[in-house]
Every structure is written in C-alpha cells, then in structure tokens.
Nucleic acid binder design. Structure first.
Lengths: 248, 248
DNA sequence: CGGCGGTTTGAAGACTATCAATCCAGGTGG
DNA sequence: CCACCTGGATTGATAGTCTTCAAACCGCCG
C-alpha cells in the first residue's frame, strides 16, 4: 500500500496542504473498494439511482448528458484524484453519465462515508469545498469558451486545459500527451460538430502551435497558444488560508 | 431580528433540513455586516483581491467574466440565500465580476468565518457542499443548453430557470415575474447577440407560450414550454440523507 | 424638448451544421 | 499473409443560424 497510486485522494489533497495522520487515515477509509472499467465503459448512466461516490485511482473519464435529439454534451473530465460527487451527491440518482475514456480504476464508497469525513475531519470537508469551487470555476470557463468564442479558441482552450490537468497529475512536463478522445468527443465537449472539429484541428495545425500524430497531441508553444486564446489555468492553486485546523 | 428576511441562509438551509439551535446560531454569525448596493452596481470586479464571501439578503445579482474582445459571459445568477463562495473561495481574488441586477442587500464576512463554520457545524459544511453541487449541475445544464441547442431553446430554458428560482425564493407561485435584465444581459447569459435575443423573444411570443410587457414576463404554459425545451429543475431538491448529525 | 439607454428591424456576411462521400488504420477471419 | 470490416478521420457542397453593422424607434428623465 505504499504504492503512490493507491492513495489518489491523499496525494491530491496533500498537494494543497500538509495532511495530519488522522486526516490521512480518514481519507484511506474511502479507498477500500476498487473496480476496474475498460476504456469506453459507462460507469453510471444519467438518471440511474446511486448513492455511491467514485474516486479516480487511475485513468481518465468524462461526465456527459444526452439530449432528446440524440446530441450529447460532455460536461467535464475526471483525472486521478478527482471525486465524482458533483453529479450524484445532491440527488438519489446520477445527473450525468460517467464514461471511462481510457481504462480506469475507481474506488467507490457510499455518500454517507463522505458525511462522516465532514464530521470527523472538518478541515478536509472545507478543503473539498474549496476544490469543488475551483472545479466550478473551471466549468464556468468552459461555459464562457462555448458561449462566446469561435471554434478554434474552444478547441485550443480545451487542449490547454486537458494538458494542464495531466501535467499536474501525471507530472507530464512537456506539452506532448495522448488524447484518447474521438473528434466527436471533442465536439461534444466544446459544442461543435465532428466535421467542424476536424477542420478546426487542421486550422490549429496550420498556425504551427499544435501538432498531431494519431492520438498524440503536441502543443508546440504553450505560452503563445495560451495568450492567443486567453487561457487561464484554474487547477494549479487552491487557497487554504481560510481552513480550520486539521485534526491530530 | 424576527424579520424573516434577516436570516436568508438560515431560511435557505432550513428548507432542506431542520436546523438545530446551535446551527442557527452559527449561521447568524455570518449575518452581521450588511451593505446595500443600488441596481447596476459592481460589488466586486474580476481579478480584484478579496477574502470576503457575500450572502444575498435581498435582490438579484449576476456573476460574469469579460473577454478580451469586449464580450462578456454571465455565468450565473444569485438570489436570496445564495452564497458567492464559488468565485472567491479558492483564490485570493475574485474569479468573476459580481453585479447587482436589482437593488441588493448583501451580508459579507471573511472566508475564515466559513472555515469556522465547517469546524463547528460539520453538518452544515456538508450541506453547503451538497448545495454547491446542485449549483454546479445547474451550470452544467446551462453549458449543455449553450453548447448544444438553438437560440430559442436557450432563452426559454433561461426563463424557466429564473422563474423556478424566483418561485422557490420569493414564493412567486404564478408564472409572471419581472425580469430586470436587458436583452444584452440575456444574450450574455446564453451566448447570443442582443439583436438575436430580440428576434428569439419575438419567436417565443409567437408560440404563445410566453408573453412580454416591458420587463414583465409571463410564461403562459410552464409545463408545455418545459417539455418543449426539455427543462429540468435542479433547485427544488437536495439530498440530505448522507449528512452527519447536526450539532446540538 | 433633447439626451440616453435599450429595443426593434433590416440587409449582408461569417461561422457552423448537415449530409454524404471517401479515405484510413487497426482488427478479424480465412 | 491478405482480403475484408469497421469505426473514425477527412473532405466537399450546401443550407442555416447567428453575427455584424446600422439605422430607426421608444419610453423615460432631467
């Protein structure tokens, strides 16, 4: 159990502050029941009853909703250390479909366990609240991107965002990463047709700022691309100065 | 202080569960410093340093970000009992501009006070987490609306959403309400031009499902309009079965 | 009675969607 | 080892929706 990857939440939260022993113990209570999902599998479907929360141990997923007309909107992506609380904690059912993008390993636990965490480790509860807020803002950014910018900006922003999260989590230092998404998926994430996603990717390549080789993406000049689309990284920092004291 | 409107957060959270005395006391600690903002005023601007959280006592506000090209995206609306934590708690500055739509009265308190609330009243911390999740899902709905539906659906969905929230908060039973937003504002909320918003509103009127008279909106047939645009109300319910016990 | 912010309306153009082929790479079965 | 299949990527032509730019219109206020 010293395997770093066995305690994704501990590792994640440990990036923000120094966890006490009892906090670490409490977090490990959530990391007991594991299950593996092959790439492409649906972990939960929209509307399905659940009282479980999932925690990503490894792999990539996305949450989506589908529309009556057959369309789909990908709402967000999940990476190592992410909790899927958002779409399941406030109702008796899931508000979104959770799909494994790559092969995933997930821990799952009943929401009551989260309630107990809030009670026994208030500082962690508050921290989770803060982390959720930063994710909320990240979604607000995407809303802005989809609502007020053109296709190229949307795609570029999405690529930068994904790269930024992978960098934090996998420690990918460069700007080359594998993108196991179809162009349809990309379109469903940023509100474009797969056909137009294709053209847009081409246009991006023509700027010289992005290169593609199959599923591998390379952002030639992250800074310049970031400036071009006014990208803001929301994941690198979470304020902790307001948290109460941690339990010993 | 028996004025119902003096304790908006207590009233809001009290809708979800029976608060204990100590919980009520704790919430009132947040409702001490009040300030009034005339309609149209900016409470905080994007990027401005803050360590304060605001709580709406009365009135309507919206949070927005502006783009380099002069555009603006309205991210969400705030009503009585709403906290503005999302855009300010995770950073030392505000991630959005907060603007009073109508005249507003806001309580404000340092985020540390929220930290203390998590510590002293874990059940409330957990509940706030749940409420934030429901708001997150509401934003996800808007993302879906903006990303995958046409103008008329977007506007109709926004009107239904606003009406639904006013109904819960002001107890507006009917489907007639005042909308103190310009068409530009509506457009900035759903990703359309003011010109197109105007045409879209006309089209909505032509369906007979919506009527307008100046700033007053009347949804003739809420159910039918809701079905037409596949609207889901996210605000009426929040699960509380997972919360820990409340402090006595 | 001008001034002003906001609403309406029109015409032209841009960006995207649609629809439909064609192309391609990886996986399958013979 | 190769023909065949299949999902995804590409590309082209055409149609829409929405934007842009402008001007006219309106209600309200000093």
């Amino acid at each position: 159990m010293n395997d770093r990857s066995a305690n994704p939440l501990e590792n994640r939260l440990g990036q923000y502050l120094d966890l006490t022993y009892s906090e670490r113990d409490a977090l490990r209570m959530l990391e007991r029941h594991e299950r593996v999902y092959p790439a492409g599998t649906a972990v939960i479907r929209e509307g399905e009853p659940t009282s479980d929360v999932h925690l990503v141990r490894s792999g990539w997923l996305h949450g989506s909703t589908s529309l009556r007309d057959g369309g789909r909107q990908i709402l967000r992506f999940y990476f190592v250390g992410d909790l899927t609380t958002t779409f399941s904690i406030a109702w008796g059912m899931s508000a979104a479909t959770l799909t494994a993008v790559s092969e995933c390993s997930l821990y799952h636990f009943p929401r009551e366990a989260l309630g107990r965490l809030f009670a026994s480790q208030p500082r962690l509860g508050a921290l989770l609240y803060g982390v959720a807020a930063s994710e909320h803002v990240a979604m607000a950014d995407r809303l802005t991107s989809v609502g007020r910018t053109d296709g190229m900006t949307r795609i570029a922003t999405l690529l930068l965002d994904i790269r930024s999260r992978l960098r934090i989590i996998d420690g990918v230092e460069g700007a080359t990463f594998e993108l196991p998404l179809t162009q349809q998926d990309l379109g469903d994430a940023v509100g474009l047709t797969k056909a137009h996603v294709n053209r847009t990717l081409k246009a991006l390549e023509n700027t010289g700022l992005v290169e593609r080789d199959g599923k591998v993406i390379r952002i030639t000049d992250v800074e310049r691309l970031g400036k071009m689309v006014d990208f803001r990284d929301r994941h690198s920092h979470v304020a902790i100065d307001w948290l109460p004291e941690g339990g010993k």
